[in-house]
């Protein structure tokens, strides 16, 4: 008889609509420590809405969101912010902060001393390969560089602490503007944090990336979870055909043997 592990995040019968359009419908999902869950699905399927409903950014929704077994709305904002970070698709910041100042904002909910905060900010910058740009102005950075700084900010927010408190990171298309090397670096960084107890939910459009790094993959279609399981179970020609209406072939990577998705002509 195994001990049941409390999930960090539990979505119970989550539904949301704007006017008469259903964004998400009856979503049930448990996220546990040490997991990377990838959300895949076509544009407008409800992936972002799911994340926004989970963090309380939607004006109204039905169902419950439990964070560490307690209703999300029962937390004080700052208390929750110490454990849960969320990066939306587009973050705009038109004021000329230095990169490191932006990353330090991720430490606002914490109070563990200036030196520790600076150290964490620098480590987070290193993880996204922005250490050498720590003092450059955010407004002078390219799109991909800005994204890396914003990623470092949310990473710093849920950085490993002394205690084993639950930590959850929700990322909406974090790799959209990153080049292949920085995507790789980010994924490796996330995996190292996940191995220390972080849980990550991320929207991904790259099946191959999802297959390689995600513990579980959830296929979102018309606001519902159409399929959830390991990459091998979910990323199949049939799911891809259902979700995207595209014919695709699955092959094994010649070196690693992992799933690679090729879209047919």
């Amino acid at each position: 008889m195994g001990v049941e592990i409390t999930p960090i995040l539990r979505l119970e019968n989550l539904s949301a609509q704007v006017q008469s359009t259903e964004l998400i419908r009856n979503v049930n999902l448990d996220i546990s420590a040490g997991e990377i869950v990838a959300l895949i699905g076509p544009n407008g399927a409800g992936k972002s809405s799911l994340l926004r409903a989970a963090v309380g950014d939607l004006d109204s929704f039905e169902g419950r969101v439990l964070f560490a077994d307690r209703d999300r709305t029962l937390y004080k904002p700052r208390e929750l912010a110490r454990h849960l970070a969320y990066l939306p698709q587009n973050s705009e910041l038109s004021f000329a902060f230095e990169s490191r100042e932006v990353v330090l904002m991720g430490r606002i909910p914490h109070s563990c001393g200036a030196r520790k905060d600076l150290q964490i900010a620098d480590e987070a910058l290193a993880m996204v390969d922005m250490s050498h740009h720590a003092h450059r102005l955010y407004t002078h950075l390219s799109g991909g560089e800005r994204q890396r700084v914003q990623l470092a900010r949310v990473l710093a927010q849920v950085w490993r602490g002394q205690d084993a408190t639950p930590r959850l990171l929700l990322l909406d298309e974090p790799c959209a503007s990153l080049d292949v090397a920085h995507t790789q670096a980010l994924m490796d960084g996330l995996r190292s944090l996940v191995s220390e107890g972080l849980a990550v939910v991320m929207v991904l459009h790259d099946f191959t990336l999802a297959a390689r790094h995600a513990t579980r993959v959830a296929a979102i279609h018309n606001g519902e979870i159409a399929a959830i399981g390991t990459a091998e179970q979910v990323i199949t020609p049939r799911t891809i055909k259902t979700l995207f209406g595209v014919d695709a072939s699955i092959v094994a990577h010649p070196k690693s043997g992992k799933t690679v998705v090729l879209v047919d002509d």
């Binding site: 963090v55 309380g56 950014d57 004080k76 904002p77 700052r78 208390e79 929750l80 912010a81 110490r82 849960l84 970070a85 969320y86 939306p88 973050s91 705009e92 910041l93 038109s94 004021f95 902060f97 932006v102 904002m105 991720g106 606002i108 909910p109 900010r153 927010q157």
Partner: peptide
Amino acid sequence: AQALNALLLGESEARHLGID
């Protein structure tokens, strides 16, 4: 001051940094 800094990231972002 710190809340204003966070607000520059966006209102949703400020909220997720624990700002009321």
